[in-house]
């Protein structure tokens, strides 16, 4: 069984520190089964506040699934999630936000998409206008604010999706390949928003296939293989000197089909 922790600034491949009191979010023995298959297997993680943790791995390794489990969108088959030291519940999700690979745009204007998030998160009415204007400016969407969100380009929609997540002022932001299939300019705009969120103190968990993006944004890296954590460490160390066979194979562009054990 692989156990890993991101509660560190040195390098580890197997270290159990999930109960660390400093962890903002932690998972203990997280498993998820579907269709008779174990898709997430005994994942132990601890996410320290203020860090940007990158999750990488081949397609089908369970990255997006892990993100959904950590965010509480899917109920794990077994294992426990802790939010600030307590079992994760629905209330905890009010302090979190997620951006999906394919942005889900409500059938409303750009501004109305942001207002909806503020409304459901219970932000007082008096605050909403200022936060809306601030976030629209931050995401450079001023000229689009009255347009239907669904007519925006892919890059603009993803910028709006990130803005809608940020307007909730989340303590932790989950990003599931937010720049997949975007051009460099759109990618840069999204990365600037993510950097801004970090500077505001948000903790980031980012799923990406882009090693360059991992280096630009990430502090820690979790490498998944076959639903298990194959390796963890600082982004630079894992990308430059991968220790696990799965990470070495993936980073080297080789196929590695046998699950690590």
């Amino acid at each position: 069984m692989f156990e890993a922790t991101i509660n560190m600034h040195d390098d580890h491949t197997a270290h159990n520190d999930v109960a660390a009191p400093t962890a903002l979010l932690s998972a203990q023995g997280l498993c998820f089964d579907a269709g008779g298959q174990r898709l997430i297997d005994a994942v132990d993680l601890g996410i320290s506040p203020g860090r940007c943790t990158v999750v990488m791995g081949a397609n089908g390794s369970g990255k997006s699934l892990l993100l959904r489990l950590l965010h509480g969108l899917i109920v794990p088959t077994s294992g426990t999630l802790f939010w600030r030291g307590r079992p994760l519940d629905r209330a905890a999700r009010q302090e979190q936000a997620m951006v999906f690979q394919r942005p889900v745009m409500l059938r409303r204007s750009v501004a109305a998409n942001l207002r909806f998030a503020l409304s459901v998160r219970g932000v007082p009415r008096a605050e909403r206008k200022a936060r809306e204007a601030e976030t629209i400016a931050l995401a450079r969407l001023e000229h689009l604010k009255d347009k239907p969100a669904r007519v925006l380009s892919g890059g603009e929609q993803q910028r709006l999706a990130v803005a809608r997540a940020l307007i909730c002022a989340p303590r932790i932001l989950f990003l599931d390949e937010p720049t997949a299939s975007l051009d460099p300019a759109s990618t840069l705009a999204i990365e600037q928003l993510i950097r801004g969120a970090r500077e505001s103190g948000a903790t980031i968990i980012l799923v990406t296939h882009d090693a360059g993006q991992a280096r630009r944004l990430g502090d820690d890296l979790v490498f998944l293989h076959g639903g298990r954590i194959a390796e963890t460490g600082s982004v630079g160390r894992v990308l430059d000197q991968p220790r696990s066979e799965a990470a070495q194979a993936w980073l080297g562009g080789r196929l590695f089909l046998t699950p690590t054990s």
Binding site: R68, Q96, A97, M98, F100, V120
Partner: peptide
Amino acid sequence: YAEQFASLGVRPLD
């Protein structure tokens, strides 16, 4: 919308 609503914590009436 389901995942987005779940992520935002949209209440049943909303």
